[in-house]
């Protein structure tokens, strides 16, 4: 049996304190745990912990528990929770912050397509300035779960025959200007 207890030494209170000072996370301490965020979220029903629990865990310093959760990656950034929150907590920004920390600390769920997509996307955009939908999805699938590609064949064909699928690798002209943008994955903000 796995013991389900949290010793207080496991709580990273300093991290929790710092967290509330990041942009968009300032109102975190106002949370009254009402669950409006989870109730509003269209994806909460797929999450391993609810958005409300994410906030509670952040506040209590249970860093690893939140960073490893699937919840933060399921957030589709629709901002419904942020608009509905009675304490005006920008929950979407909290989720973004957690995603970034998970990537920086390399603790996100492996072979889970969402963080893979995010990283592929950033690499492509930072190098070429634009995202080429077809290639991005292709690379994401290869890295996470190539079987996805099979299920996408039908959609791909539909897009192709309606002239909506471009295989071109897009690129901006003055790509040199992008060199001053730090490589996203390495940067700690």
């Amino acid at each position: 049996m796995e013991r389900q207890i949290r010793y207080q030494r496991e709580a990273d209170l300093e991290w929790a304190h710092r967290f509330t000072q990041h942009p968009g996370c300032e109102r975190l301490l106002s949370c009254i745990q009402c669950g409006t965020c989870s109730g509003t979220c269209p994806l909460s029903i797929y999450m391993d912990i609810t958005p409300r629990q994410v906030i509670a865990m952040v506040r209590e310093g249970f860093r690893d528990d939140v960073l490893k959760s699937k919840t933060i990656w399921l957030c589709a950034s629709c901002y419904a929770c942020s608009v509905e929150c009675p304490q005006k907590i920008n929950i979407t920004d909290v989720m973004y912050r957690l995603k970034r920390e998970a990537i920086q600390n390399n603790v996100f769920p492996k072979r889970f397509p969402i963080p893979v997509l995010a990283q592929e996307f950033c690499e492509m955009v930072r190098r070429r300035g634009r995202n080429s939908e077809f290639w991005m999805v292709f690379r994401m699938a290869l890295r996470s779960n190539p079987a996805i590609l099979l299920s996408m064949m039908r959609t791909g064909w539909d897009l192709w025959r309606t002239g909506r699928l471009s295989m071109r690798m897009e690129r901006i002209q003055r790509v040199n200007e992008l060199q001053y943008i730090p490589a996203a994955t390495k940067e700690v903000d």
Binding site: A76, Y96, A118, C122, R126, N131, I172, T185, E187
Partner: peptide, 25 residues
């Protein structure tokens, strides 16, 4: 002319600063 990708939700998930720089361009 010569617009670049806005960064969408993905870039914000990886780096706030870089995402903002991308949009700022």
């Amino acid at each position: 002319p010569d617009w670049n990708c806005c960064g969408a939700t993905n870039y914000m998930s990886v780096s706030e600063t870089s995402a903002t720089l991308l949009a700022a361009r």
